[in-house]
Design a protein around this nucleic acid. Sequence first.
DNA 1: TAAGTATTTGAATCACGATTCAACAAATAT
DNA 2: ATATTTGTTGAATCGTGATTCAAATACTTA
Lengths: 229, 229
Amino acid sequence: MTQRKSRADRRVELIDAARRAMIQHGAEGVHLNQIAEEAGLTSGAVLYHYPDLRDLLIEAHHAGMERFYEQRVKKISGIADPAQKLITTIRSGLPEGPDDAGVRLLCELGGAAGRNRVYGTLLTTLYDRQVAMYQTILEVGAAQGVFTLAGDSEQIARNLVALEDAYGYRIIARHHSIGPDEAVGLILDFARMSTGHPLKEIPAARPKTTRTPRPRSGGPSRGTTPNAS
Amino acid sequence: MTQRKSRADRRVELIDAARRAMIQHGAEGVHLNQIAEEAGLTSGAVLYHYPDLRDLLIEAHHAGMERFYEQRVKKISGIADPAQKLITTIRSGLPEGPDDAGVRLLCELGGAAGRNRVYGTLLTTLYDRQVAMYQTILEVGAAQGVFTLAGDSEQIARNLVALEDAYGYRIIARHHSIGPDEAVGLILDFARMSTGHPLKEIPAARPKTTRTPRPRSGGPSRGTTPNAS
DNA sequence: TAAGTATTTGAATCACGATTCAACAAATAT
DNA sequence: ATATTTGTTGAATCGTGATTCAAATACTTA
């Protein structure tokens, strides 16, 4: 028999298993057995903890969003410069690629939100929180004289989140010419117009320039070191 | 027995029935019987025409997109002024409300596109076509000296479509403070920055100002007539 | 009008997932 | 140690939807 767990532990595990299962099989297409398998249990055990599957799915979505949001907050927590903060935030709102689990899950929800009020509310709440996050960055930047806002900060923030969302969908759908980098570029174009700041992308050296096996005659120390602050 | 139809006619009918059924039950959650019922047939008859359900669903999505796109093209076909053309296009890309069938169907696809290459391609293609549509409007406007583009026309067009998409999702999800009008306003904010044009919304008299049962002392002929061009 | 063909039905069957539950095992309490 | 509670299994059952197909029905053609 599978290792026995306390009620609380098992519920947390199940939520995560459900999250994983939904990413693989679709938010609405998941089957109880798939969740059970993902958790290493039988369907009966899952039902024991969640007699109504829908509750589990909602909690899983909720957890997924929370995780997504927390990750973003964490990534910008150490950055002081508003411009770098903005750039980093934009990047953190996009999937890393077509298989990015977190964003995949959010995309799954878009359609369901039209038919399911709970999911609609969940998504709407996340959107509003993200808007608030951007708004704070913009306002602080303006207060410091770094940004010169071309309009209402809420309006700009809403459009920033909207752009993120949309390009997330494009990336997930495997658009041939829009990947994470291109999306960042496009959103930054808008951000520049809105903030009057050049928003140069200097953060974190990207060691991959479409393959860099360092073929040239080796210049001693230059390039890969990511501390060119 | 239900009225017999020719092969071609029936297929067209089925595609439309599938479209309607998907809007009600989700792009991936539709059942054969629901489609059959929507078409006024039995499941057997549906299978007779489409032995593989997936083919029908794909065709239905394709048709839905085509319809959506054609509607937009049609709406701007008569407009000469680039500014009005742009405004009208923006509005036509948004759902009329949370229950707008056409957009609902597109939203359904967003999640599935991550798992299903065909859907991904379908959505991507639609996106590219819309970008081209906007790009043409922008370029023509710039050539006529009406617009002063703040950047590459493709970049602006991509962001315009992205904003449309994202606000479509928000509206479908019943965001409390973002409806079609608010979304148009937000997108126009971006469009103004990008074109250097004020883009005043003068089109089509809106007879509804949050309820206008004309309670005042009745002025004889005035108000409801929608030809105040 | 008769023969032939295409479309549709309806019932039977099949497949699969959800649900239930008695039995069992692991923790915890006594 | 024993009893009790809690978590888990596995098999049985139920329900639903997909699939099949012979028969019936509506068209078409000769």
